[in-house]
């Protein structure tokens, strides 16, 4: 590209020097655990990585409403229905906090929505699995939200201020999600043999996808080092996965349910559980959009967005008319 604005070689060097100085200052601030705020100078790569990470996180919250919405009208009691409704509303709220944080980086809500619908933006692979029975509502709260909490707690100290603040609010609310799920599992696991079988079946189906939520193994996670340095990722995928397994196995034992992993064994030397091989082929297939219900999920989002376009248009038209009358 021609440097139209920069006529002389000296100018190019001067700009490069200023950029290098800013860059060094930025890296030093982040390394000192200082927060970066929206109007501060930041490297383009940092901005882009954050937009990708925050918007994908937001999309996950929004798409995550769909598998649970599937059971809303079939909840077994009014109590369970009210709880599930509140949880789904929280997921929507989480999506909105995060979209609002991403927007401070200079991307619009419409661009993010468009990227999701066009398949350019990803969301968590976990939501491309179907929710086949009511017990899945318990298993999702317990395992999926449990895994999400471990992923998210460190992000409360992430380097980008608006992201960190959104994560503080989200983490406060996630604990309810996990506990209501565990309570739901407790009730099923101590119920009739059929209910207990249903709980075990849900654990069997959600265990491995939940482990995959922490992302690929560390030796196959190309962007991790840079993200760690920028404090937008604070623990490695494998560390968090191990932590999740170690806290969850005793919870399953308390339920009287069996983790579907024959290789799972306490390792006295490590002070941690050894676990079986994860099917990463399945993970990458789901990332590529080959999950069992991936197409349904995106179709549901597009239908909602397009089907409700008239509401947004009507609201805008009404506001324009009110403004006109106020001005007259």
């Amino acid at each position: 590209m021609y440097t139209v604005e920069l006529g002389k070689q000296n100018d190019v060097e001067a700009v490069a020097a200023v950029d290098a100085a800013r860059h060094a200052m930025f890296e030093a601030r982040v390394a000192a655990d200082d927060f970066i705020e929206p109007k501060d100078w930041m490297p383009e790569a940092y901005r882009k990585t954050l937009i990708r990470q925050i918007s994908q996180h937001a999309h996950s919250e929004i798409v995550g409403m769909l598998p649970e919405g599937n059971w809303l009208t079939r909840a077994p009691s009014l109590r369970r229905k009210a709880i599930l409704l509140a949880k789904i509303q929280d997921e929507c709220g989480h999506g909105l906090y995060l979209y609002s944080a991403a927007e401070t980086l200079g991307i619009s809500r419409e661009e993010m929505t468009e990227a999701l619908h066009a398949g350019r933006a990803k969301y968590s692979t976990i939501f491309n699995y179907p929710t086949l029975t009511w017990a899945d509502m318990g298993a999702i709260g317990w395992l999926v939200d449990g895994a999400a909490i471990l992923n998210q707690v460190p992000l409360q100290r992430t380097s980008y201020g608006p992201y960190a603040r959104a994560m503080v609010r989200i983490c406060k609310e996630e604990s309810f999600h996990q506990r209501q799920g565990y309570e739901c599992m407790m009730q099923l696991a101590s119920g009739t043999p059929a209910q207990k079988r249903m709980a075990q079946d849900a654990l069997n189906r959600w265990w491995w996808p939940a482990l995959m939520m922490f992302g690929p193994p560390d030796d196959n996670s190309p962007n991790s080092a840079q993200s760690m340095r920028w404090r937008i990722k604070r623990d490695s995928n494998d560390e968090l996965r191990q932590k999740f397994i170690d806290v969850t196995v005793p919870q399953a034992e308390a339920l009287g349910l069996t983790i579907p992993d024959p290789d799972l064994k306490w390792n006295e030397d490590r002070g941690a559980y050894d676990y079986g091989a994860i099917d990463w082929e399945e993970f990458y297939a789901v990332v590529r959009g080959e999950g069992p219900v991936a197409k349904d999920r995106i179709k549901a989002r597009i239908d909602a967005w397009e089907g409700q376009a008239w509401v947004r248009e009507a609201a805008n038209a009404y506001a324009a008319k009110q403004n006109q009358q106020a001005a007259a």
Binding site: Y97, S100, P162, A315, A319
Partner: peptide, 17 residues
Amino acid sequence: GSVHAADARMAIQAARD
């Protein structure tokens, strides 16, 4: 944080939720 809304009244509603 922030919300999107057509007018101030709807912004209050959205902010509440």
